[in-house]
C-alpha cells in the first residue's frame, strides 16, 4: 500500500466513495483525455459531471468502473485502487457499482425482467429470488406490465428505465450514469432523472454525466465541470430541489 493509499484509507479524505489524485488518462502519446484530475465524491453525494463532448466525462466514468486504467495518478473507488486492481478483482468491484449507459446496453435476446435479473444472477442469487427482485424494480420504474417483452419492442425511454432498474437492482453503493437522458424528450428526461435522484435519497452515491442545462438547473446538485480533460469548475449544490 502506497503512502497515498494509507492516507486515503485512514479517512484523511473524509468518507469518500470516489477519490482521484492527479489522475491523467492518455490514449495517444502526448494528448490527454483527462489531465491531472483531483477530486472527491462523498458517500451518498449526488454529483453532476458536465462539459462539452470530449471534455473527459465518459473517460472519468470508465475509470471509475474499471473499464479503463489511469495512465497516471491514483483512483480510489469504495476503497479499491483502480490503478492497481487485479483483473480478477474487477467483477467484485463492479457488483458494487451500477452503471447506466446512454445506449442502454441491454441484452436483446432476453426479456426485460431477465435483463434486470442478470445483475443478480452473476453473483449467484437463485433465479426465483432474482426474478422477484427484478419484478420489484420494474414496478418501481413503472414497467411491470412489460416484464416479458424484449428490449427492442420498447421505446427509448422505456429501455432507459430498464437500464436504470438493472443498475439499481443489486442496491449498488455507487450509481454512474453516462448521459442517461441524451436521447430522450424533456418529459421523459425528468422521469428518468427523478428515478436516478430517488436512488440518491436511499444513500447511493450518484454521478451523472450530462450536458443538459435544464437538468442541472432543475436539480441544483454539486456540478463538476470538465474542459479539455481538466477540472474547470466545481460548483457546490445550491440546495434547490425539483
Amino acid at each position: 500500500m502506497s503512502g497515498w493509499e494509507r492516507h486515503a484509507s485512514s479517512g484523511a479524505f473524509g468518507d469518500g466513495a470516489v477519490r482521484t489524485y492527479h489522475v491523467s488518462k492518455s490514449y495517444i502519446a502526448g494528448t490527454f483525455a483527462l489531465h491531472d484530475l483531483t477530486l472527491e465524491v462523498k458517500k451518498g453525494e449526488f454529483v453532476f459531471l458536465t462539459g462539452s463532448s470530449g471534455a473527459g466525462k465518459t473517460t472519468l466514468l470508465k475509470l471509475l468502473f474499471a473499464a479503463e486504467r489511469p495512465s497516471e495518478g491514483q483512483i480510489l473507488v469504495l476503497g479499491r485502487n483502480i490503478a492497481r486492481l487485479r483483473e480478477s478483482a474487477i467483477p467484485a468491484l463492479r457488483r458494487r457499482i451500477g452503471v447506466v449507459f446512454q445506449d442502454f446496453k441491454l441484452l436483446n435476446r432476453l426479456t426485460i425482467e431477465d435483463n434486470v435479473a442478470v445483475s443478480l444472477e452473476v453473483v449467484g442469487t437463485p433465479r426465483r429470488e432474482a426474478r422477484a427482485r427484478a419484478f420489484r424494480l420494474l414496478k418501481q420504474v413503472g414497467l411491470q406490465h412489460r416484464r416479458y417483452h424484449h428490449p427492442l419492442s420498447l421505446s427509448g425511454g422505456e429501455q432507459q428505465r430498464v437500464a436504470i432498474a438493472r443498475a439499481l437492482v443489486n442496491e449498488p453503493e455507487i450509481l454512474l450514469a453516462d448521459e442517461p437522458t441524451g436521447n430522450l424528450d424533456p418529459e421523459l428526461t425528468i422521469e428518468i432523472m427523478d428515478l436516478i435522484s430517488s436512488a440518491s435519497t436511499r444513500g447511493t452515491t450518484v454521478i451523472v454525466a450530462t450536458h443538459d442545462h435544464n437538468v442541472l438547473e432543475r436539480y441544483g446538485k454539486r456540478t463538476i465541470h470538465l474542459e479539455g480533460g481538466r477540472l474547470a469548475e466545481d460548483t457546490p449544490a445550491t440546495g434547490a430541489e425539483p
Binding site: A67, S88, P91, R94, R95, V99, S119
Partner: peptide, 16 residues
C-alpha cells in the same frame, strides 16, 4: 461480443 461486454459490466466474472 456486446452481450459478453454487458455481462462483464454488470460484474460477471471471466469464468461466468
Amino acid at each position: 461480443e456486446d452481450e459478453i461486454e454487458i455481462m462483464a459490466l454488470v460484474g460477471a466474472s471471466r469464468s461466468f
